[in-house]
Amino acid sequence: MIDDASAGSAGTRLLGPADVRQLAAALDVHPTKQRGQNFVIDANTIRRIVRAAAIEPDDVVLEIGPGLGSLTLGLLDVAAVTAVEIESAFAQALPETVATYAPDRADRLTVVEADAMRVEELPDPQPTSLVANLPYNVSVPVLLHILERFPTVVRGLVMVQLEVADRLVAAPGSKVYGVPSAKLAWYATSHRAGLVGRTVFWPQPRVDSGLVAFTRRPAPLAKVERKAVFTVIDAAFAQRRKTLRAALSTLAGSGVRAEEVLRAAGVDPSARGEQLNVEEFARIAEELA
């Protein structure tokens, strides 16, 4: 009999604490901090994430790092899922787990055994949404890589370390606004979509997690290349205490040239990187071109 805490839609059983531990034991998996392996063991948290992701029935959801399949099962209740998993044991076991817990939805799952930081192609149909519990140690580069490589991903919801969540959605002028904030803003609008306590994971991390929802938007300046804008962002934040005139002097060729570029872009040369929005960084890149 399936209890209410673990039941999903008809035909689907979500993983509870005992299920997760049994699956890990069967695979002889011992979660490591190095790989950021913290598995969700609470079915209600999975339901909450799926609801917050606002997935449509015709979406194809890209899940990064499905692990033992806790989130995968919840996502399969509402849409097709392409799961990218770097660990061979997890990738090979996931279809069997889905066939056991959600037999009527097994045909919705596609598993790609690959490093999410290096994946360049995915089987059709292409993903339209990204929903993932991203490993803490690579969450920002993975998110930015997926947004760069797969323009069909138009919205998503990721669970990351709470501190990282705050940085991703930070606005110019805030204490935590930085490179992740500005680069995500190039691709999408974003906001905090909730808090996830550490007690719903096994093993328990030492920090809480945050949900970040995003919706893709057009590039701030279509005629400026993303790489050029990101180069400016990196230089502006390389030494946060420096004025933009000083921070961009090497990139521009001299402090004098940096000041000329900044003024032409409508930016105060004495400002600092944390004060600028992504549109202003784009204008600077345009003037540097």
Rank of each mutant, 00 (worst) to 15 (best):
Ile86Glu: 12
Ser139Lys: 04
Val278Met: 01
Ser254Gln: 08
Val200Tyr: 09
Arg272Gln: 03
Ala247Ile: 00
Pro31Met: 14
Ala106Phe: 08
Pro205Ile: 13
Gly210Ile: 08
Ala282Glu: 07
Ile49Asn: 12
Thr45Tyr: 15
Glu148Pro: 00
Ala89Asn: 08
His145Ala: 13
Tyr136Gln: 04
His191Cys: 07
Tyr177Trp: 02
Pro123Tyr: 07
Lys183Leu: 10
Asp19Glu: 14
Thr199Glu: 14
Val179Thr: 15
Glu280Trp: 09
Asn277Val: 06
Asp28Gln: 15
Ser129Leu: 05
Ala182Ile: 06
Trp186Val: 00
Ala252Ser: 09
Lys227Ser: 11
Pro135Gly: 01
His191Trp: 11
Val81Trp: 10
Ala289Gly: 12
Gly273Asn: 08
Arg155Gly: 11
Asn137Leu: 05
Pro141Glu: 02
Pro180Asn: 08
Asp58Ala: 15
Gly253Ala: 02
Gly11Cys: 14
Glu121Ser: 06
Lys183Asp: 06
Ala193Met: 01
Pro205Gly: 05
Asp107Gly: 00
Ser139Arg: 06
Ala18Asp: 14
Arg245Asn: 05
Ala18Ile: 09
Leu62Thr: 02
Arg216Trp: 04
Thr32Tyr: 13
Asp208His: 09
Val138Cys: 02
Ala53Met: 14
Glu87Tyr: 13
Gln239Asn: 00
Pro95Val: 04
Leu71Pro: 01
Thr215Asp: 04
Val78Ile: 05
Asp208Phe: 02
Gly67Val: 05
Ala165Phe: 05
Pro17Phe: 10
Thr250Ile: 01
Ile2Cys: 07
Leu143Gly: 08
Tyr136Arg: 00
Ser88Leu: 09
Val140Trp: 00
Phe90Ser: 12
His191Tyr: 14
Leu15Ala: 15
Arg167Phe: 04
Phe214Gly: 06
Pro220Asp: 14
Glu280Arg: 13
Trp202Ala: 12
Val154Cys: 01
Ala106Arg: 06
Phe281Leu: 09
Arg217Val: 04
Arg13His: 11
Thr231Phe: 07
Thr231Cys: 06
Phe90Ile: 13
Lys175Ala: 06
